[in-house]
Simulated assay, not measured.
Amino acid sequence: MKATQDIIARVRRWAADGSKAERRLASLVLSDLSYVSKAPIAEIASRAGVSEPTVTRFARALGCEGIRDFKYHLAQALAVGGSYLNPSPLRREEREERILATVCGNAAAAIERVRSSIDMETVGLIADQMSTARSILSYGSGGNSSLMSMELHNRLFRLGLSVIAHSDGQMQRMTASVATPETLVVAFSISGYSPSVVDSVRTARHYGARTVAVTAPGSALAREAEILLPFVVPEDGNLYKPTSARYTMMAIVDLIAMTTAEAIGPSVLEGLRRIKHSLAAVNVNDPKLPLGD
């Protein structure tokens, strides 16, 4: 079996569509993955109420070479995604209040961590480089990082800066290849190991571009960039809740954007006024509303 194949999904299909013996084996596997990945074949057969040859045939039917290979893939599946298997059922009591407290509390805590740990001197250095760059490339791959690259674009174009965001790996590599010393590349990655982002920052530096990374310290991306804004957000293990990391990243983007706006100075206000004016004819003309919304 190839390492990329999902043995849990295969077992679940056998649990629904296999023979009676195969369904018993599949049910045993799904109910106690850790046990089956370690137990001798005789114990597995006895607990499932089948013969040892049936266990071996079951393993091979799943695409494994034998029982040892079967156990290896089970252990691998357990290590990678075990926390998502057989989760405790959600309690219904006070569910709404618990969800509200968890999401809002973690969001506030994530932003507070930024406030207490961010190096504003580094933010100021990034802002100075943004305010003088001829062009800015914003990179991010995956969920939160790609969203933050787009958000940086959204924040900076209205300041009159030439900025474009790319989440596609090929576009990241191609645009990095035509970067110049007047280009500033800003890369977002929670892990710091997104191949296209790391490669593109390396390529852009090769051609003289200035590079910034918002990522995990010590990661591959952190090592490639000239300027690092460390990004570390401990997760709480709640599998039902979206990650709070994006609140942290959003706060960092806003800090960079505001510092850049102030580094440029009052000249940014004319562009903001023009945007407000151009949208007044098609949107509700309320000066208290956010710009562009």
Rank of each mutant, 00 (worst) to 15 (best):
N106K: 14
V50Q: 05
D293I: 14
K276Y: 03
Y72G: 02
R113L: 12
A213H: 05
A281F: 09
L33Y: 06
V253N: 04
A204G: 12
A220D: 02
I136P: 04
I164C: 07
R10S: 11
E151Y: 00
S37M: 08
E182M: 12
K241D: 06
A42Y: 02
S116V: 11
V11A: 07
K2N: 15
L74P: 04
A222I: 02
L90N: 09
Q5V: 12
R115V: 12
L239P: 00
P290M: 01
T180D: 13
N285F: 09
A9T: 15
A220E: 11
N238A: 12
T203F: 08
A3K: 15
A110V: 03
K288W: 06
L161E: 01
K241I: 15
E112F: 08
S117R: 14
S244H: 04
G218Q: 00
G192D: 03
A204T: 10
A127Y: 04
A109K: 02
M130H: 08
L100I: 13
D119K: 09
A15L: 11
C64H: 01
A209Q: 00
R23Y: 03
P266G: 01
V233Q: 10
D254M: 04
T180I: 07
A251G: 04
L269A: 15
I227G: 05
L291Y: 05
G49P: 11
N144V: 11
S34V: 12
H73S: 03
L156H: 06
A216F: 06
G192F: 00
T180C: 09
M250W: 10
V29S: 08
